[in-house]
Nucleic acid binder design. Structure first.
Lengths: 105, 105
DNA sequence: TCGTAGGTATGAATTTTATTGGACCTACGG
DNA sequence: CCGTAGGTCCAATAAAATTCATACCTACGA
């Protein structure tokens, strides 16, 4: 069972769900960006500069959270997104490499 | 440019497009099945026993073709689907392994 | 030659996804 | 205390993806 914020446990992560999450270009870009950043990097949703409204942002980050790709931690006023690198690497070894190396132009 | 039947060249394959193709459970299943079968295996669209109409089948196989995951070759009356294993492996190393190992159910 | 099996193309209906505005909440700075 | 920045939730809408029926085509076997 996912926790109250919708984060699944590592063993609950579903590859199909992850593919669906990554099949949207904006979400892919977010993950590729986090995967490229230094280990443990935290970024606010807004900081990615995606060309959509606040509520759409919330929607996309919820999808990412629900897939298990990111975790969101409250930090003062804003909610920081963090890649679940260990969990992803253990569950789907090589996936992050593929994502980073095949990022669109 | 993809050929007349819609097969992209290896260098035209786009990871995003492939993720989209794989994000549908039926298409995922087709690819996982082909990836598990022996090298060079050919299967007719119908042989997968997917629970949809003929025209829907055509649709899904067109998506797979367009992504570059499969090639379709005419063989007598029917059109055989074949995994583009070499091309996929070269372009996206490790992807097929992930697909096979994380097949649902 | 006729029937059938396996596919395709097209257009329409349906279902899913993505997007947004607006109301609301909370922490922070002045 | 007030304004603002960053987010959430909800309901509505727009845009995609999926599905199907129908009509059509082609190779094969009886």
């Amino acid at each position: 069972m996912p926790d109250a914020e919708g984060h699944p446990l590592p063993e609950e992560m579903d590859f199909q769900t992850i593919l669906k999450a990554l099949s949207d270009p904006m979400r892919y870009e977010v993950i590729a960006t986090l995967a490229t950043a230094e280990e443990g990097a935290k970024r606010s949703c807004a900081s990615f500069g995606l060309p959509v409204s606040k509520s759409t942002l919330t929607y996309h980050f919820r999808v990412l959270r629900g897939s298990g790709l990111i975790k969101q931690v409250d930090l003062g006023n804003s909610r920081m997104a963090q890649l679940r690198r260990q969990d992803i690497e253990r569950r789907f070894p090589g996936l992050l490499t593929l994502i980073v190396e095949n990022r669109a132009g």
